[in-house]
Structure formats: C-alpha cells, structure tokens
Amino acid sequence: MEKFNQHHGLVVPLDTANVDTDQIIPKQFLQKTTRTGFGQHLFHDRRYLDNDGHKNNPEFVLNKPEYQGASILLAGENFGCGSSREHAPWALQEYGFQVIIASSFADIFYANCINIGVLPVILPEDTIATLFQQSKDNLQHITVDLVASTVKTASAQYDFTIAPFHKYCLENGVDSVGWTLNKIAKIESYEAQMPAWQ
C-alpha cells in the first residue's frame, strides 16, 4: 500500500446523502478478478447516459469541465452505505480520489478505504455544509494533512480524528496481513484454549 502523509488537491462536491456502493460501482462491473479496471465505471449510471459508458451525462458533477482532475471528493452523509464491495473504493482510487470527506461513512466502506490507502475524513455537519457552499461558489483546492490530522482551506483549518492505528497504517503504508502474521504466536495460543465446539 502507498504511504499517505499529506495531499493537496481540487475538491469536487457530490451533494447527495446516502450514496450507496451500488451507485459508486454498479454490479455489472463486479465480474473482474483483478483490483483494477473499475475507475472508468465509477458512478456509471449517474456519469453516463448510455449503458456502454460512451455518452457523458453533462449534469453530473464529475463530468463538469471545471472539476476535471479533482482528487478530493466532498460527499453527503452516510457515504458508501450498502454492499461490502471493495470495488467501490478501488473505483474511487483508480479514478483519482485520494481523500473522501463526509460527515459520516458506512462502517464497511470506511474500513475498506483505510485498507487500500484512501483517506476517509469525517468532519462535523456544519463544517461539511460550509465546505459544500465554498466548493460550489468557487473552485477550491485544499490540503489534507494526515500527520497533523487537519484539513486546510484558504480561509480556515479544521481538525479531524482518526484511530491511531489507522493513521499509522496509512502513514507507513503498512502491509496489515504481514503485521498480523508477526503475531502468530498470540493467535496460536488463542487457538489452543478454544472449546471443542468453537
């Protein structure tokens, strides 16, 4: 996993609550056996007018010329709800998003982001409302600093919280499986005391 310390980029505002993983990556694109090839299908049904993905929907915010190259997604509450498909954060990452900011995320989606090196940032609802307003009024480039756990806009700085181990893993690009395999003796001693039915 790539290390994540700080990121400066353009914000794209996707002002919808409860964006589910079916919207992020519809099921017809889940038939791959690789972790790549999902970015082009990100938000397919909202992004394209046709089923083949050739005709852009000009109304969809990601298609607006001014937001091309955006790498920070500003999203509505309960982002990533629904299916556990890791294909959703894979698609977001491959499209170019390194940070997703929302007032709340679904649990599985949040964990999936951490595990692949996309930073989910939780900020209070009123801060999110301010960021939405600013990003709609003017193009907004912001700096997300994981080390300091801050989001810096041109006019303000907001602190966010993240679990210490999540932060450590992102900052150091930790191979979480390798990390746990170093604790195999502890796993073995747990297994040795389990009841027969377990």
């Binding site: 556990s84 890791e86 599985i108 964990a111 999936n112 595990n115 979480s176 499986v177 746990t180």
Partner: peptide, 8 residues
C-alpha cells in the same frame, strides 16, 4: 468485510 479483510 471487504476483500482486503478477506485476505487478512
């Protein structure tokens, strides 16, 4: 769980 967790 997600696929990275399946691997874990």
């Amino acid at each position: 769980i997600g696929t990275s967790e399946v691997e874990h």
